[in-house]
């Protein structure tokens, strides 16, 4: 309402010679989305904690976009070697190697998408919208991959058969109860996706357009 009530400024008038007028709210939403994406880069996106009788405090591994981090990661890897699971940081190496440039590119694409008024803006905004979904899908894939490609020569191979660790919520494997959940980075990216999605909802009714 407010955006349509504003009178076009002189510069916008000039711009309107080539493109249609850009709503300030759209600009705010896109810039905010880009900022949220950038902010998410160094934050944890997902974590999993595993409890067992021997580990009453739990062992926690946290995924950022670039690495699996946490002081318990060596211990988890050490335990995983008994069942023949690959070290955590061997998963998703390609995705993690390109994640930072990709997020920066997505954020830049959001800002750039302020100007084009044609199908191009959809193309520029779409990656940010599907990024959280892609993350979840990739996480699920690697959990499946890690649990279903156990080294058959591992010591406990006859005790632990292939399994897929639970990404979200409670799971159980051997003597461990596990709890995986999404963390701040993911929620910021999800917020960015929602905000970006909002910019794609047609808002103007014909009658209200100036």
């Amino acid at each position: 309402m407010t955006e349509t009530a504003n009178a076009p400024s002189a510069s916008e008038t000039v711009q309107q010679a080539t493109t249609r007028r850009v709503s300030p709210l759209i600009v705010v939403l896109l810039v905010a989305s880009a900022a949220l994406l950038i902010a998410s880069m160094r934050l944890p996106w997902w974590s999993i904690t595993m409890w067992a009788p021997q580990y009453p405090q739990g062992l926690t591994a946290t995924a950022t976009l670039t690495a699996i981090v946490g002081e318990d990661v060596p211990e988890i890897d050490e335990l995983n070697h008994y069942i023949g699971m690959m070290p955590l940081n061997e998963a998703a190496q390609f995705e993690r190697s390109i994640s930072i440039p990709m997020v920066i590119a997505m954020a830049a694409a959001l800002v750039i998408s302020i100007w084009p008024r044609n199908w191009l803006r959809w193309v520029l905004r779409l990656p940010a919208v599907i990024f959280p979904v892609f993350f979840l899908a990739d996480l699920k894939f690697w959990l499946w991959y890690a649990g279903n490609n156990l080294d058959p020569s591992a010591a406990l191979s006859s005790t632990i058969s292939a399994f897929t660790p639970t990404a979200l919520g409670w799971g159980k494997v051997a003597q461990f109860h596990t709890y995986g959940w999404l963390q701040a980075g993911f929620w910021l990216a999800l917020a960015a996706a929602v905000l970006t999605l909002l910019t794609l909802i047609p808002l103007r009714r014909k009658g209200r357009t100036a």
Partner: peptide, 26 residues
Amino acid sequence: PRLLCFLLSAALVLSACSKPTSPPSF
């Protein structure tokens, strides 16, 4: 719908803080 989406986002972000500290069985 826009307001709804904002609220939904906020709720999702808040829900990220709801991780339990130990499983019920322990």
